[in-house]
Amino acid sequence: MEYLSAKEVAEKWNISRRRVQVLCEEGRIPGAFKLSDVWVIPKDAEKPADRRKTKKKQIKREVDKLVSED
């Protein structure tokens, strides 16, 4: 299996290297592990969904549902 560094994944996913490190620390990237002080991520790993966007969409759906019930 081929691996990429956090920096390479950050460039691939167009997010910051620090964000990739946080995703790894939270266990949100399957197969990622720390080798010494470097995060190593499988080349075929998919970018996890941004929970911040998911919450906003869920809240909007709930508000829309409540408004339509009135």
Rank of each mutant, 00 (worst) to 15 (best):
I15L: 09
V9W: 03
G27E: 07
I29F: 00
W13M: 11
I15Y: 06
I41Q: 04
L4E: 06
Q21P: 07
W13Y: 13
R19E: 04
R52Y: 14
E26Q: 14
V20P: 01
D50L: 14
G31T: 13
R51Q: 15
R18V: 13
S36D: 09
A45D: 07
A10M: 10
D50C: 10
K43T: 12
A6G: 15
K7W: 03
A32R: 00
P30W: 14
C24R: 07
E11I: 09
R52M: 11
R51H: 11
R17D: 12
R19C: 01
E46Y: 13
W13E: 08
R52N: 13
E26I: 04
I15A: 06
K47Y: 02
K7C: 08
C24V: 07
A49G: 08
S16H: 13
V22F: 03
K47C: 15
A32F: 00
Q21D: 15
P42G: 14
L35K: 12
A6I: 03
S5W: 10
A32E: 00
K7R: 11
P30L: 14
E8S: 12
K12P: 13
E8I: 08
L4W: 02
V20E: 04
L23F: 08
S36I: 10
G27H: 03
P30S: 10
K34A: 02
I29Q: 00
V22Q: 06
V38M: 03
K7M: 08
R52P: 09
W39I: 09
R51W: 14
E8C: 12
R17L: 05
K47P: 14
I41A: 05
D50V: 12
A45P: 00
W13R: 09
R19Y: 11
A6W: 01
V20Y: 01
A32K: 00
D37I: 06
V20N: 04
R51K: 13
D37T: 14
R52D: 11
W39E: 01
V20S: 01
A10T: 06
I41P: 01
I41D: 01
E25V: 02
K43Y: 14
P30K: 15
E26P: 05
R18K: 13
P42F: 12
E46G: 04
K47A: 08
G31H: 05
C24L: 04
D44W: 09
P42L: 09
E26Y: 05
